[in-house]
Amino acid sequence: MSDVKKFLYVNRKQPYGTIYALESLEVVLIGAAFEQDVSLAFVDDGVYQLTKGQDPSGIGMKNFSPTYTALGDYDINKIYVEKESLEARGLTIDDLQHLTWEDEDEDWAEKDSIRVVSASEMAEIMDQQDIVLSF
């Protein structure tokens, strides 16, 4: 199909201090209905969106972090996390949720969705897109 475009959602904010992260997630889920070629990028403070063990009950907000684990169901399985951003924040991939998708072509084999990439690799990924949406 020639009308499939490459979409990249760039996430650069922490999850609860502002509304950007939740807004981005909702746009991603709504946009998934259009069956485009979607990638998600988590850079700078955006890497905090994927941490495991989030519990915002104490600040009176809804915990939307489980929703990231549903992204595989929506055929969103290219989730790029910038290595330098993790390192500057004292985080590793082990601090993040384990996001997976099931490959229908390989008898629903479970595969990892998150790929940790360097800033220069991220720049290449950004360069390959038709449409970039920033949050």
């Binding site: 922490q14 999850p15 609860y16 905090y48 941490t51 495991k52 063990g53 989030q54 519990d55 915002p56 009950s57 104490g58 600040i59 907000m61 972090s65 601090d95």
Partner: peptide, 11 residues
């Protein structure tokens, strides 16, 4: 503030 740490999964 502990509540904000917990929200972000920062132990």
């Amino acid at each position: 503030l502990g509540e904000d740490l917990k929200a972000r999964g920062l132990g």
